[in-house]
Design a binder for these strands. Structure first.
Length: 339
DNA sequence: CCTCCACCGGAACGTGAGGAGT
DNA sequence: ACTCCTCACGTTCCGGTGGAGG
């Protein structure tokens, strides 16, 4: 949406011959000050190496470049809370004050955040120099999503192939997940593909249900494949425990098995602290379910289980040369009853 | 009510890769 | 050749803690 407006702005400016430059940055993907500034420079065709320069140096180059071209520069920082939460608001402070040092140019900043409390994280000085205007967009509800879907559907599908129920279901499913329009469109697209492959004439609700499963299934496979090695090994540990019908696993159990399979693979195991972090990451992407539980006398730990199909993990890991031979391994600590 | 387990999770620090400038 | 930079990924250190069992 912002990208759309931004494009419109850029086109309009071009049409009017106005010196306007725009730059869209997703701060979750561009997660450091350095990279944000590098992206800003990039928008001005100033080449910045992905590492090597001091942050201040990059900032100076950006300022110089903007000012020398008499530009109106609009920077959009999407998911800006992700950047501020991890790196602090120093960069915002610098950016808000940039106009004081620019002689011939102006810059504007648009920040987008899903966190309504985000502004409380900011230094009051930043907030005041922002002279900000806040717009709150509430998530789309189901009926709005339905309108959006019908709107796009007319472009993408032949008339009559789309059932009312299918569109409503896409809208309802997406609305229950923060009203994400992209999600709704994805569902509809995949449902369309499935319908076509089956040679059916109309997209029905059943196809949408299948599409939902399909999207999730593909997402999990993709995630499993692209995991870093040690995350895979940790997950492999959870898998082996599940295979041995161990009901509840805690961090310590997982770590023990993890160490074992590292040994078998001739790898140096990471520390438990790190593995604990990996478990949290796996939880965040939805491959594991880990929640802290206090077992009283028996300490405080995380209870961990797979949150995707056991068989799917086995299937995907069997395609990885380094993991294949671990899939049938029975951990010693299971045999001697320590777990 | 108190203790104490088995971790949790924040923070500081280290390392090695990739690169700039001089 | 040398110094200085960022970043990703780890390690080390350590204070914190919910609740079963005494």
């Amino acid at each position: 949406m912002v990208k759309y407006v931004l494009n419109g702005l850029a086109r309009k400016a071009y049409g009017l011959g106005a010196a306007v430059r725009v730059c869209y940055i997703n701060c979750r993907l561009t997660g450091t000050e350095y990279r944000v500034l590098a992206s800003l420079c990039n928008a001005l065709n100033v080449k910045i190496p992905f590492t090597g320069l001091a942050v201040g140096e990059v900032f100076d180059r950006f300022k110089l470049s903007v000012d020398s071209r008499k530009l109106l520069f609009v920077a959009v920082l999407d998911e800006i809370d992700a950047l501020i939460k991890t790196r602090g608001d120093a960069i915002l402070y610098e950016l808000t004050r940039i106009n004081e040092t620019l002689r011939r140019s102006r810059t504007s900043i648009v920040g987008i955040s899903n966190d309504l409390q985000f502004k409380e994280l900011l230094d009051p000085r930043v907030l005041s120099s922002l002279s900000e205007e806040e717009l709150v967009f509430r998530p789309y509800d189901a009926s709005e999503l339905r309108d959006i879907l019908w709107d796009r559907a007319h472009l993408a599908f032949y008339d009559g192939v789309l059932s009312d129920g299918a569109v409503s279901l896409c809208a309802a499913l997406a609305a229950s997940e923060h009203g994400d329009a992209r999600r709704a469109l994805d569902l509809l697209r995949v449902a369309g593909e499935l319908t076509e492959r089956k040679g059916a004439k109309t997209i029905m609700e059943g196809h949408v249900r299948q599409a939902e499963k399909r999207i999730e299934h593909d997402r999990v496979i993709e995630a499993l494949r692209n995991l870093p090695l040690h995350s895979k090994l940790v997950l492999c540990g959870v898998y082996l425990l599940g295979k041995a019908k161990v009901s509840s696993a805690v961090t310590g159990d997982i770590y023990e098995i993890y160490r074992e399979i590292c040994g078998r693979s001739g790898l140096a195991p990471l520390t438990q602290r790190r593995v604990s972090g990996l478990i949290n990451e796996l939880d965040a992407i939805g491959l594991l379910n880990a929640r802290v539980a206090s077992l009283g006398r028996y300490g405080r730990t995380k209870k961990i289980r797979l949150s995707v199909a056991h068989s799917l993990v086995g299937e995907i890991f069997a395609t990885d040369d380094r993991l294949r031979r671990l899939m049938n391994y029975v951990p010693k600590c299971l045999l001697d009853g320590r777990i």
